[in-house]
C-alpha cells in the first residue's frame, strides 16, 4: 500500500467533491444560516451570542453529517453502481489503497468544509464582539471564543467514524441502503447515553444487559459532544474527552479494516 497512491486517490476525491455542487451548496447554505442568526438573535432577549453559537455549531453538525453520509456513500457505493470503479481498479492500485484514498479524500473535503463554516461563524461572532461587547466583569465566555474549535474538532472526530461506517457499509450494499445504515449508525451513536441509563429504568436484566452491551459496542458520540459546555463556558473533563477521542479513532480504524477485508474479495458485477 503506497502512501503516494493513497494521496493521489484522495486528491482526486477532493477535487471532485469541491466541484460537486451538492456539498458546496450545503456549505453555502450553512454560511447563510449562520449569517441569518444575526437577525434571529434579535428576538432572543439578550441570549443573542449564545443562540448564534448554538445555531452555528448545530448547523455545522448537521451539514457535516449530511456531507459525510451522502458524499461518503457516493464514494464507493455509487462508484460501484455507476461502474466508474472498473477503470480505477484496473490501474496498479490495490483495493485497500483505493478505499483508504477515498476515505482520506473525504476527510480532507470535510475538514475544508468545516473550516469554511467555522470562518463564517467567527465572522458573525466578530461582528457581535464589536457591536455588543461583553461587559468587562462578565463571567461568560468571550464572543470570539477559541474554545469553539474544540467542539468542531470533536465533530470532525465523529465524522471520521461516520465516514468510515459509510465506507464500510458501501463495501457490501448499494447507495440507498448505505445511506440508511450510516444514518442509523449515527443515531445509534448518539443514543449511547440513553442506552447506558436504560438499565436503570427497565426491570428485565436481559434487556438491560443488551442495552449495556450495545452501549459498549457502538461508538459513543455523546462523549464527543461538548457544544453545550463550551457555549456556556463550563468545565471540561480532558481525560474523558481524550478517552472518547481515542475510542472513536480506533473505531474508525476497525471499520476501515473491516471494509478492506470485505472489499478485497468482493465481486464487482
Amino acid at each position: 500500500m503506497s502512501p503516494v497512491t493513497v494521496g493521489r486517490v484522495a486528491a482526486a476525491v477532493y477535487k471532485e467533491s469541491v466541484r460537486d455542487r451538492v456539498p458546496l451548496s450545503m456549505v453555502f447554505f450553512a454560511g447563510v444560516l449562520i449569517a441569518a442568526s444575526i437577525f434571529l438573535s434579535q428576538l432572543s432577549a439578550g441570549q443573542d451570542v449564545k443562540i448564534v453559537k448554538d445555531l452555528g455549531l448545530a448547523t455545522m453538525n448537521l451539514i457535516g453529517l449530511l456531507i459525510s453520509v451522502f458524499v461518503g456513500t457516493g464514494l464507493v457505493a455509487k462508484e460501484i453502481e455507476r461502474r466508474s470503479i472498473y477503470a480505477v481498479l484496473s490501474k496498479p492500485v490495490t483495493r485497500s489503497t483505493y478505499l483508504l484514498g477515498k476515505y482520506c479524500g473525504l476527510l480532507l473535503t470535510l475538514a475544508s468544509n468545516l473550516a469554511a463554516m467555522a470562518v463564517a461563524l467567527y465572522l458573525v461572532l466578530g461582528y457581535f464582539a464589536i457591536a455588543t461587547p461583553l461587559p468587562a466583569n462578565s463571567t461568560r465566555p468571550p464572543h470570539v471564543d477559541p474554545w469553539l474549535l474544540l467542539p468542531l474538532a470533536l465533530l470532525f472526530v465523529q465524522l471520521m467514524v461516520t465516514t468510515a461506517a459509510a465506507l464500510f457499509f458501501s463495501t457490501f450494499s448499494g447507495p440507498l441502503l448505505t445511506v440508511l445504515f450510516t444514518l442509523a449508525f449515527w443515531v445509534a451513536g448518539h443514543f449511547g447515553g440513553d442506552l447506558r441509563d436504560y438499565g436503570r429504568v427497565v426491570d428485565s436484566p436481559i434487556a438491560a444487559g443488551v442495552a449495556r452491551a450495545l452501549y459498549y459496542l457502538l461508538p459513543n458520540f455523546g462523549g464527543l459532544d461538548v457544544k453545550n459546555e463550551v457555549v456556556h463556558g463550563a468545565a471540561l473533563d480532558a481525560a474523558a474527552i481524550t478517552a472518547a477521542v481515542a475510542a472513536a479513532v480506533t473505531y474508525a480504524v476497525a471499520l476501515l479494516g473491516a471494509a478492506a477485508a470485505v472489499f478485497e474479495r468482493r465481486d464487482l458485477k
Binding site: 497512491t5 466508474s84 477503470a87 484496473s90 490501474k91
Partner: peptide, 25 residues
C-alpha cells in the same frame, strides 16, 4: 482496460482524469 459503457467522474475534465490515472501509474 476499457470497460464496457465506461463511466468516469462527472466533475473532472478528460485532461484531469487522465492526469490522475497517469499519476496512479
Amino acid at each position: 482496460f476499457l470497460p464496457e459503457n465506461p463511466s468516469f467522474y462527472d466533475y473532472l475534465s478528460a485532461e484531469e482524469l487522465l492526469t490522475y490515472f497517469a499519476g496512479l501509474f
